[in-house]
Amino acid sequence: MPELETPSMTVPEMAEVWSSAFGTAHLGPHDDFFDCGGHSLTAARISQQIEVLTGVRLPALAVFDNPTPAGLTEVVNRSMQHAAEGS
């Protein structure tokens, strides 16, 4: 039986989530949350959208600790992998 691939979120998908939360056309993988004017409500919007898309519930603080789409994507994918291994 073939091994099932763990679902993952891509950096471009995460950048889209961030772009939506900031109300801008495009953010890149290394754009900084704080440099873009991010605050607690923006972090909450990003966290909520990640949960809708992936089922991973991250505290808004995770955005502060991983302030780029690329960095936060790694956190989400690790969480998804741990969840898949635990099931």
Score class of each variant (00 low, 15 high):
residue 45 R to K: 10
residue 28 G to Y: 00
residue 45 R to P: 03
residue 58 L to D: 02
residue 49 Q to H: 10
residue 22 F to C: 05
residue 32 D to Q: 07
residue 70 A to T: 11
residue 34 F to Y: 03
residue 26 H to P: 03
residue 67 P to A: 12
residue 28 G to P: 01
residue 22 F to S: 06
residue 23 G to P: 11
residue 56 V to S: 11
residue 35 D to C: 05
residue 53 L to G: 10
residue 39 H to T: 00
residue 59 P to Q: 13
residue 74 E to F: 03
residue 64 F to T: 07
residue 14 M to A: 09
residue 32 D to V: 00
residue 39 H to Y: 04
residue 74 E to V: 10
residue 71 G to F: 05
residue 31 D to Y: 03
residue 21 A to N: 01
residue 18 W to C: 08
residue 18 W to A: 08
residue 35 D to Q: 09
residue 58 L to G: 03
residue 62 A to N: 06
residue 34 F to R: 09
residue 71 G to Y: 09
residue 60 A to Q: 11
residue 75 V to Q: 12
residue 72 L to T: 14
residue 59 P to M: 08
residue 61 L to E: 14
residue 44 A to W: 00
residue 72 L to Q: 15
residue 20 S to A: 13
residue 40 S to P: 00
residue 14 M to C: 09
residue 30 H to I: 00
residue 71 G to P: 12
residue 29 P to R: 08
residue 51 E to M: 07
residue 72 L to W: 13
residue 28 G to S: 08
residue 28 G to E: 10
residue 18 W to N: 07
residue 44 A to L: 12
residue 27 L to V: 15
residue 48 Q to A: 10
residue 33 F to K: 06
residue 69 P to C: 14
residue 75 V to E: 10
residue 42 T to Q: 04
residue 25 A to L: 13
residue 35 D to A: 11
residue 46 I to R: 01
residue 35 D to K: 09
residue 71 G to R: 14
residue 42 T to C: 06
residue 13 E to S: 15
residue 72 L to C: 12
residue 27 L to S: 03
residue 40 S to M: 01
residue 24 T to K: 11
residue 66 N to R: 13
residue 66 N to T: 11
residue 14 M to Y: 07
residue 37 G to N: 08
residue 74 E to Y: 02
residue 14 M to W: 02
residue 54 T to N: 08
residue 47 S to C: 01
residue 21 A to Y: 01
residue 43 A to F: 00
residue 70 A to G: 09
residue 36 C to Y: 01
residue 34 F to K: 09
residue 17 V to F: 04
residue 10 T to E: 12
residue 11 V to A: 14
residue 63 V to A: 03
residue 53 L to W: 06
residue 35 D to F: 05
residue 17 V to Q: 13
residue 54 T to K: 09
residue 13 E to M: 14
residue 39 H to K: 01
residue 30 H to M: 06
residue 66 N to D: 07
residue 45 R to H: 04
residue 12 P to L: 13
residue 22 F to M: 08
residue 16 E to R: 15
residue 53 L to C: 12
residue 48 Q to N: 07
residue 28 G to M: 04
residue 66 N to H: 12
residue 51 E to K: 03
residue 24 T to A: 11
residue 54 T to L: 04
residue 53 L to T: 05
residue 29 P to M: 02
residue 53 L to Q: 14
residue 45 R to I: 01
residue 52 V to G: 07
residue 39 H to P: 05
residue 39 H to A: 05
residue 57 R to I: 02
residue 23 G to F: 07
residue 20 S to P: 02
residue 65 D to Y: 04
residue 49 Q to R: 14
residue 11 V to N: 10
residue 27 L to Y: 03
residue 63 V to S: 03
residue 46 I to K: 04
residue 20 S to F: 04
residue 26 H to M: 08
residue 55 G to R: 06
residue 27 L to F: 05
residue 37 G to C: 04
residue 53 L to Y: 07
residue 64 F to G: 05
residue 27 L to G: 04
residue 74 E to G: 12
residue 53 L to M: 14
residue 60 A to P: 14
residue 42 T to L: 08
residue 40 S to F: 02
residue 59 P to R: 08
residue 13 E to R: 15
residue 58 L to Q: 02
residue 43 A to T: 00
residue 13 E to D: 15
